[in-house]
Amino acid sequence: MNPANYIVLSAVLFSIGAIGVLVRRNAIVVFMSIELMLNAANLAFVSFARMNGNLDGQTVAFFVMVVAAAEVVVGLAIIVTIFRTRRTASIDEPNLLKY
């Protein structure tokens, strides 16, 4: 199978994730969209590693997973805290930090 197809799939997944971040209001869904983008990136790394015939991309993919795991922990904690104080999971509601 042509490795370029994986790259295309990766791009499609990334775009879906990006659009999801931009258009959805629910913090949890936005969060999932971010995960989707991260995994699209992972897929691209692995595909490139395959195409170039070395392991660099695969190594980086592991790092990304670790970072993603950490990010999930911090991100969910923030979302839960905001929900507790403001009773909302919308990403547009907490907009006090502005000009």
């Binding site: 990006a18 930090l97 502005k98 000009y99």
Partner: peptide, 17 residues
């Protein structure tokens, strides 16, 4: 310029994209 600091996370995301 500071008017662009709207506080809406999604608009920041849009500018990042």
């Amino acid at each position: 310029l500071r008017r662009y600091q709207t506080g809406f996370a999604r608009s920041y995301a849009l500018s990042m994209v």
